[in-house]
Design a protein around this nucleic acid. Structure first.
Length: 491
RNA sequence: CGGGGUGUGGCGCAGUUGGUUAGCGCGCUACGUUCGGGACGUAGAGGCCGGUGGUUCGAGUCCACUCACCCCGACCA
């Protein structure tokens, strides 16, 4: 087969880049750091959105929309939040353009300077809490369970398609509660929603847990996250859910009268996943032939490719294929019959593998004569010849099997690449030779984590919820530690 | 933002110490032969060489500035 992609072993990050572009998912745009999400990529994102949106609504949330622009002053209200966001934001300073007097084009009208600059939202906590102030008076107004699908801008210095772009699409949930317990419960619930989505839709095993202090969201009391391991042994944060305590309520003076008749600050959460999930999806499953998309997120689940020499053959095959396609569509699958005659079958095989279509059905003269179809699965590239009349009932089990296999494969990979280190030397050695997640004891201090990051580039990705209490000693300082944290080099 | 590299038909690239009609492969169009793993032949179409400004009789080639992308750092909720 002609090689279209750089292989993973040659250069993993080049492979990723090639894949995103060649599979038609996205490309770089004329604007630095911003991407164009192409139809195939956007179709996958839409499938993700649809599944997540349903899950949010099932857990009681409603969608709403808040402005793209945030008055600069809002960012100085919450001290920790400013610290985290003050730097890399796009700022609107003027509101009008005018023709250059020399006739050379357009310039910013200096007369049109804004009284107060506007920040293009890097996240919406501030504008939303400013709004919530007007919505909340009593405990009867709570909880507020709102989600927003939006774009945000963070002026990143080095960007990579989907993984880190200056503008990206995401959803951000912002909830308000009467008690700390309820808010905490919400933050944990949404983390579970994310984990459920990652595992059951993306076929991506994730570790649930909390972040260390230094990785915590600016303004949060506690940040929970799901972390996944990519094929190159680096970790990718796939979703975060924050318990914000009363920090934003205090910053925006949002109080409510509780049952006892006393005024209290509102408790908050926020949670989000972004188009970065596309990056996770691509890196988790794909191979040197191209994209591998889990069937539940594949915009196109089945493609039918005819093999023919003559017009007459194509006609016969088309009759069978059209009928099969109609039956498959009726059964709820997304199907395409590619009867174009400008490419040969071999070209089409390679093309649909590159695009990640989970199942391909090949129909040729032999199949028409024998009443069979050749069915091949993208995950293992296995082919089998089955009776034509059994195809429709075989597809669902096959798609289920692919979905399950992708998850199992990724889980096995993660297990094989999660190592235990009991000394700092072991830790460094694993990082140099194998990569992956490293489970190690840590004394719980910011200083130790910073030292490890400085010396090895690895950070604490997550302190897993399911870690057993296990007294030990910090691999760096030897001080006591109550449980292990999961370290890795991250994207 | 620092160091290094690259911008030439849609894509991948060549283009000598500056010299006039800017090449090659893939793709594209037409026709023919092919068609069960990225076919082949023949004939075509498609470029003001990333942008701006300079040096020069003459610039893809030299200079300055600028924009974008890639790699390595710094940064990354």
């Amino acid at each position: 087969m002609a090689k279209v992609l750089t292989t993973r072993s040659e250069n993993y990050s080049q492979w990723y880049n090639d894949l995103v572009i060649k599979a038609g998912l996205a490309e770089n745009s004329a604007v630095r750091g911003c991407m164009v999400i192409k139809p195939h990529g956007y179709a996958i994102w839409e499938k993700m959105q649809a599944a997540l949106d349903r899950m949010f609504k099932e857990t009681g949330h409603q969608n709403a929309y808040f402005p793209l622009f945030i008055p600069k002053s809002f960012f100085s209200r919450e001290a920790a939040h400013v610290e985290g966001f003050a730097k890399e934001c796009a700022v609107v300073t003027h509101y009008r353009l005018k023709n250059d007097e020399t006739g050379k084009g357009i310039i910013i009208d200096p007369e049109a300077k804004l009284e107060e600059e506007l920040i293009v939202r890097p996240t919406s906590e501030t504008i939303i809490w400013n709004t919530y102030k007007g919505w909340i008076q009593s405990y009867r107004d709570l909880p507020i369970l709102i989600n927003q699908w939006a774009n945000v801008v963070r002026w990143e210095m080095r960007t990579r398609l989907f993984l880190r772009t200056a503008e990206f699409l995401w959803q951000e949930g912002h909830t308000a509660h009467a008690t700390a317990d309820e808010a905490m419960e919400e933050a944990r619930r949404m983390l579970d929603v994310y984990a459920d989505f990652a595992e059951n839709w993306m076929a991506l095993p994730v570790v649930r847990g909390k972040k260390s202090e230094s990785e915590r969201f600016a303004g949060a009391v506690e940040t929970f996250c799901i972390e996944a391991l990519m094929q190159d042994g680096k970790a990718l944060q796939c979703g975060t859910s924050h318990f914000l305590g009363q920090n934003f309520a205090k910053a925006f003076d949002v109080k409510f009268l509780n049952r006892e008749g006393t005024l209290e600050y509102v408790w908050a959460t926020s949670w989000g996943v972004s188009t970065r999930l596309m990056g996770a999806l691509i890196m988790a499953h794909s191979d040197d032939n191209g994209l591998v998309i889990p069937p539940r997120l594949a915009p196109l689940q089945v493609v039918i490719v005819p093999v023919f020499k003559t017009e007459d053959e194509l006609k016969k095959i088309s009759q069978t294929a059209e009928k099969l396609m109609a039956e498959l569509k009726k059964a709820g699958f997304s199907v395409k019959f590619d009867d174009s005659d400008n490419q040969k079958p071999g070209w089409k095989f390679a093309e649909y593998e590159l695009k990640g279509v989970p199942v391909r059905i090949t129909l040729g003269p032999r199949d028409i004569a024998n009443g069979t179809a050749e069915v091949s699965r993208r995950d293992t590239l296995e082919k089998s010849i089955i009776p034509l009349d059994s195809v429709v009932r075989e597809i669902q089990p096959l798609l289920d099997s692919i979905q399950k296999n992708l998850y199992q494969r990724a889980l096995r990979f993660r297990e094989e690449n999660t190592h235990i280190a009991n000394t700092y030397d072991e830790f460094k050695n694993i990082l140099e030779t194998k990569g992956g997640f490293i489970s190690a004891h840590w004394d719980g201090t910011v200083e130790t984590e910073a030292k490890i990051k400085e010396e090895t580039k690895a950070t604490i990705r997550v302190i897993p919820f399911d870690a057993k209490p296990e007294p030990g000693k910090c691999i760096v300082t030897g001080r006591p530690s109550a449980q292990r944290a999961l370290f890795a080099v991250a994207y």
